[in-house]
Design a protein around this nucleic acid. Structure first.
Lengths: 219, 219, 219, 219
DNA sequence: TATGAATGAGAATTCATTCAT
DNA sequence: AATGAATGAATTCTCATTCAT
């Protein structure tokens, strides 16, 4: 009984220490950059001893990995409902896209530090991280592609190389995300930016007769 | 009492050594990444003594700075003629864009290593580098914006938040560039990819009545 | 969660290591001279790791500073009682001087190595050290001056520029100290040398009628 | 003929370069201290090439040696006439001493930089230099001793351990010299200081009946 | 489990010295 | 003879990692 309790207390303490370290690492990584960050900076920020670090992680790299893992898993969970109900009119498509993108933006913003950290540093740490992050981007691209494929099949989107287009969309998103998180968004509000983003994605730059009725074009 | 000849010879030798170091650095940075690269790796690759490095650069960072400077100045020189003759029909717009983008692709490809290096690592080295690279991206965006602004004014493009759109285009470009340089281009050839890229940029994803006559729409 | 005991143990260990380093430094500085001494020599002599040095000192200079500080503080403590009871007859003056000087000699001898080190090297390390050592000499001179001033006031010493005289006395002392510590004392024993020193200081070189009764001269 | 001339020109140039280097070294040694001075500092100050240094000296140490040699030889030459005519009255003794010391002061002042350099640094360079400088001090002490011995023999000075006394005098001189050259002389003028110095050397600190007639005391 | 002093391998950096011109 | 670019041995210094408490 006593030892059981004791064990639980110990485990709880360990978990708390681990969280302290992860939070401290995020903070210091953001402040100084991954490479300039020393283990001693992390433990100082976390308020624990130097040796304690090694009871939880093997290396600075492993902390980053844990942080990235945590971020990705949270993002994936939240993005599940993205393809819940597929649209059946053109306006629904636009609305659905706006909804998805807005929700994504919200989630990403709530992990602002880590997201910016990944955008900045992940590819520079080593090839494995670069690959992992590219995987994430690719999976976003794939989600997007499935969406567009469906739109093409249902006649709401023009036939195109949907794989290339979805990668292009991911690129657009990444750029605007970075500008946003560094407060350099070229638009008054995020909502404006997202509207422009979606408008542009659907209509391109070309000028043309306005009136769209939302009906699929007769081909 | 140094003779002119002697001075010239010395200078030439020094310049040659500097080039050797820059080339070696590019190679090693690409192979091992900026942070994993040691000064000793660079001098070994360059075939010069350890001390020689410090006669030319203060630090690894400074070499990277020199490389980036060299790349940027080359890119800028080559991009001058981008806005030479502005188009006067819609088809010309498309063609002009394709020309610009194709030429850029060629230039970028000829600096493949450095470009990839910058895409991967620059932002992670420190804030100053991040700022410098963002400046470059922003200047591309600005060039693009001027182009679109003109197209809007002449009625070939629909009115939109051209600053946001051009940043989005830069994002698209960066993503495809990266995929291309890492051989993951989602298209059979670069030309195909560029075509898709431009098609998408002008027309968006939306399906609609095909026939365009190249004339600006009557508004 | 560091226990009090643990903290004390750690502190004690650290202090012990620091002392080891200071002792080793003194030894090596004496053997090889400050400038020829390498950090690696000090740690080898101390039997600790290279990195340990830097946990305790920033540089070789800082070790020397610590050593000098330690020496000066010890000397100051011991010299406090120098002006305890001021003499009231001429003989007492001589005896008091002899007492002070003898005691000083004893103290200095017990720090033989550091004293010689300071005499030889301190001024050559940098201007700050030169200033610090000159300060010490000046404070000795000041002590001496107060002593002489008193003697002049009470009529046991002839009126003179006591500041200059005390500096001269310090110079004499430093020279004899150096000769003594390098075993080149021009006298059979230290006591002899001190006697000559004091005799000379009081009577000068001039020959004159011997008999002194210890009474202040009627002026 | 031509080659003769050529050779002379070359030699003259070489000698000039050597002097430039020696002067530069003195200046930089004074400014930065011997140990902090780099060969590159000396050649920069001299305005010659790095390699040129090694055509004239093997090392920094050798430059210092040359400078010290030059100083010592100059001092020795000038001090020859010190014992020219030995005094025959007490006043003549004082006057002779004042003359010698004043002349020495003048000479030393004209080599201010080198003298201060030697006082500060020589002993710290290595044991050989320490020995060389001590030799010089000892030779001064010896000169002084001969002077005092004579005074004792002729009855103008009281019998004493003349070797110890002359070392003490050298110590006094060194201290005052240092204070003087660093502008900390505890007296309005050098002349005042020298007067105090000599007064003290002859009469000591003790107060006593004034009137001296310059005659040797009846013993 | 947590701690922080100690460690030492390894990297950056310096600078006296060489040597081709 | 003079030069100054190149050199690399030698040192300093850092910091991830260990380990005794």
């Amino acid at each position: 009984m006593t030892s059981d309790t004791r064990q639980q207390v110990d485990e709880a303490r360990k978990a708390r220490t681990r969280e302290k370290l992860l939070d401290a690492a995020t903070k210091v990584f953001m402040r100084d950059g991954f490479h300039a960050t020393l283990i001693s900076d992390i433990v100082a920020e976390a308020g624990v001893g130097q040796g304690t670090f090694y009871r939880h992680f093997q290396s600075k790299r492993e902390v980053f990995e844990a942080l990235l893992e945590r971020l990705v898993s949270r993002l994936l969970v939240q993005f599940q409902p993205m393809n819940d109900q597929l649209p059946s009119t053109f306006e629904e498509y636009i609305e659905a896209s706006r909804g998805v993108v807005t929700r994504m933006a919200g989630i990403l913003e709530s992990h602002r530090d880590m997201v910016l950290l990944v955008l900045r540093e992940a590819a520079a740490i080593d090839r494995a991280f670069e690959a992992k992050v590219e995987e994430v981007y690719d999976s976003f691209a794939l989600q997007t592609q499935l969406f567009i494929d469906h739109a093409v099949r249902t006649g709401f989107a023009r036939p195109c190389h949907t794989q290339a287009v979805s990668q292009a969309l991911v690129g657009m998103g990444l750029r605007l995300l970075r500008l946003w998180l560094t407060n350099r968004l070229p638009a008054p509000t995020v909502e404006d930016a997202l509207s422009e983003f979606i408008e542009f994605a659907f209509r391109g730059m070309e000028a043309r007769p306005a009136g769209r009725d939302g009906a699929p074009p007769a081909i």
